[in-house]
Structure formats: C-alpha cells, structure tokens
C-alpha cells in the first residue's frame, strides 16, 4: 500500500448503491474508479491498480468471484473486500475462497466500512458477524465423527482460541471489544482472524462447500 489514504475501486451493478458507498466513504479514501459489470471491472482494475476493491458478490456473468479470479492472475497484490446484501452462505464462501480478504454486509455503517477498508488495505482480514457465524458453522459441521483420511489439522480445524474470537465477533463484538473480553491485544485478535481466513481459503475439505449448500440441522 502506498502512503496516504487507500486507493479504492467500487464494483456493483446498482448505481444507487455505488453512490451511497461513495458518500459513506467520503474523503477518508481515494476512489479511483467504478464499474457496474464484471468485464469492465476486470479491465479497469487492471489499469488503475487500486489498493482495495469493494466488490459486490452478486452480479451477472460470474459475480464477484469471477472478478477476483481474473484480476488475481495478473495482479495478485490487489486486495478485495466483499460487500453484499446476500446472506447466501455458498456465495459468501465462494468469494472468500476466491481470495477476498473479508466480507461485510451492506447494512454496515459508514464509519465501520471505512474502518474495514483501512484494515484490508493494511493486509488484515475483515470478518462481519455473519461471516464469523458462517465459518463457525462450517468448521463445526465438517467433522461429525472425528478426523478422516486426508484431514490436515493445520488447515481443517479451528483452534479453541480462534473459535472464541469468532464467537465474540459473531455476537457483534468489534475487534477492540473482543480483545478486551479475552484480555489479549487487538493485534492478536487480527492475527487469529487472518489465520482463520487462511484456513478458510486453503482448506481442501470438500465439506466446506457442501456445508454451504445444506446448512446443518443437529
């Protein structure tokens, strides 16, 4: 990331929504471009090379996932934050596994969105309460009968501390409040969340995908 406010690119197929985000972000970031469809987004992001792309999950022609996959091939340094009204877990998990550094819902407040963009620009991961809930759910449901063949404990399960952190975020605690509750530093909370993001992206467990399409009933 270059010095100064983060350079941000907006991708969303709803004009009104981009207008709203622009005004929420105000002067705290530099908006370097916008696109309302997948192909234009891929081209313009490649040209302008923003620090962070705020990306709608749902769009025709492959959605946010298609944008991330195409841009990452040539510009792996560009960071993505997914922003969506969608509560569909399969879409959210797909966009994270494609490489997004986090997911927030469109009901997020202006200051929280700014905070999330700055966090992503700094290389951290951003988990909304809903994403934290999805991840807890996905990892909890994956191993009903204990470890199986091909199970990698480094990637395929959450540590007890990571679970505690996610549970507090899912309950609506900010990173700061989570840190205070667990008597750890905000940096440590961030590193737990980044580690969970890595697991979410790299775990080869097919259950993650399966979970996303059929939420568990226990």
């Amino acid at each position: 990331m270059t010095a100064g406010p983060p350079r941000v690119f907006l991708v969303d197929d709803h004009d009104l929504f981009r207008t709203g985000v622009r005004s929420e972000l105000g002067d705290t970031v530099e908006i370097v471009g916008e696109a309302d469809e997948v192909r234009a987004a891929i081209e313009l992001i490649g040209e302008r090379l923003p620090d962070v792309v705020l990306l709608d999950v749902h769009m025709p022609d492959g959605g946010g996932q298609a944008v991330i996959e195409a841009v990452k091939r040539d510009h792996p340094e560009v960071l993505f934050l997914a922003l969506s009204v969608s509560d569909a877990p399969e879409d959210v998990i797909a966009v994270i596994r494609a490489g997004a550094r986090g997911y927030v819902t469109k009901t997020i407040s202006g200051p929280e969105l700014v905070d999330a963009v700055i966090r992503v620009a700094a290389g951290d991961a951003v988990f909304s309460p809903r994403l934290a809930g999805f991840v807890l759910d996905a990892f909890a449901s994956a191993l009903p009968d204990g470890p199986r063949a091909g199970f990698d404990p480094e990637l395929d399960q959450l540590s007890p501390r990571e679970q505690e952190v996610l549970r507090l975020i899912a309950r609506g605690y900010t990173y700061k409040e989570t840190a205070r509750e667990l008597s750890i530093s905000v940096k440590t909370v961030e590193s737990h969340v980044s580690s969970v993001l890595r697991k979410l992206q790299l775990s080869t467990r097919h259950q993650l995908t399966r979970w996303a399409t059929e939420r568990r009933l226990i």
């Binding site: 819902t105 309460p129 809930g133 759910d137 449901s141 568990r216």
Partner: peptide, 12 residues
Amino acid sequence: VPVDVVAVGDCL
C-alpha cells in the same frame, strides 16, 4: 430498529 441475526447450527 434493524435486528442483525447470526445463527450457528439449527434444530427443531
């Protein structure tokens, strides 16, 4: 007032 729901697991 908006109410944000996060649910982990489900049952009858």
